[in-house]
Design a protein around this nucleic acid. Structure first.
Length: 113
DNA sequence: ACCTTGACATTGG
DNA sequence: GCCAATGCCAAGG
């Protein structure tokens, strides 16, 4: 395992603003780990308690919640998204309206590696 | 080293 | 849009 990768993933997720969402693959790319979307999911399962990471803003590439519909995790995630006025219908978010578009500030963030 | 397991993504029907 | 097949890649046995 590579905790350096995990750390980069957590930091990248922290850059997703409230009210916006991103996909696992998008986070992997921005973290400098193209092709490793699955690693993002794994990293979000090991977020340190002391760190504040908006894991719930990360969705599948088609906007669907990754957890099984009806599961406790899914219900909690949907609740948190709705607190940020993100609309969740049929277990999915309309990316066209809520997907995060990294700006120049984020590009600078990326250059730090 | 081999096999299995995912909070994934893309493509084709 | 749903489903199945593939490709993918790090972790853990």
């Amino acid at each position: 395992m590579n905790s350096d990768h995990y750390h980069r993933i957590w930091k990248t997720v922290q850059s997703v603003p409230s009210g916006k969402v991103a996909s696992y693959g998008q986070i992997a790319d921005l973290a400098g780990l193209p092709g490793r979307a699955r690693l993002v999911g794994k990293a979000l399962g090991y977020v340190p308690d002391n760190m504040q990471v908006p894991w719930y803003r990360i969705l599948r590439s088609d906007g669907k919640i990754a957890f099984p519909a009806g599961s406790e995790d899914a219900v909690r995630q949907i609740g948190l998204l709705q607190q940020e006025d993100i609309v969740v219908l049929n277990h999915r978010v309309k990316l066209a309206q809520f997907q995060w578009q990294p700006d120049l500030a984020e590009l600078l963030f990326k250059l730090e590696y």
